[in-house]
Amino acid sequence: MNELIHQPTRLKIMATLNALRGAAKLEFTELRKLLSVTDGNLGTHLATLENAGYVEIEKTFVGKKPCTRVSLTRAGRRAFDTHIQYLRDIIHASG
């Protein structure tokens, strides 16, 4: 089991980003609202996922306002798919 992904908040982050179409990205503030978590909590979990190579964090400026956008990497998508398959296998193996 991928314990890094399985942590509840990180699991929701991965599930949310995995549902984005194609190369779409989600703003940090939108992700925070969707998950109902604090800035600090989200930032910590995103850093963990970024260090694992599962998410990509892009920091830009829109005018003078900083904008942080997040997306899954290919490795992140693969790891998430593998984790979902692991969960399905548990359900099917138990009959």
């Binding site: 699991l11 929701k12 599930a15 949310t16 980003l17 995995n18 549902a19 984005l20 989600l26 969707l34 998950l35 979902i84």
Partner: peptide, 8 residues
């Protein structure tokens, strides 16, 4: 996971 994905 399904609920989070559906919301997105």
């Amino acid at each position: 996971i399904d609920a989070a994905g559906a919301r997105t």
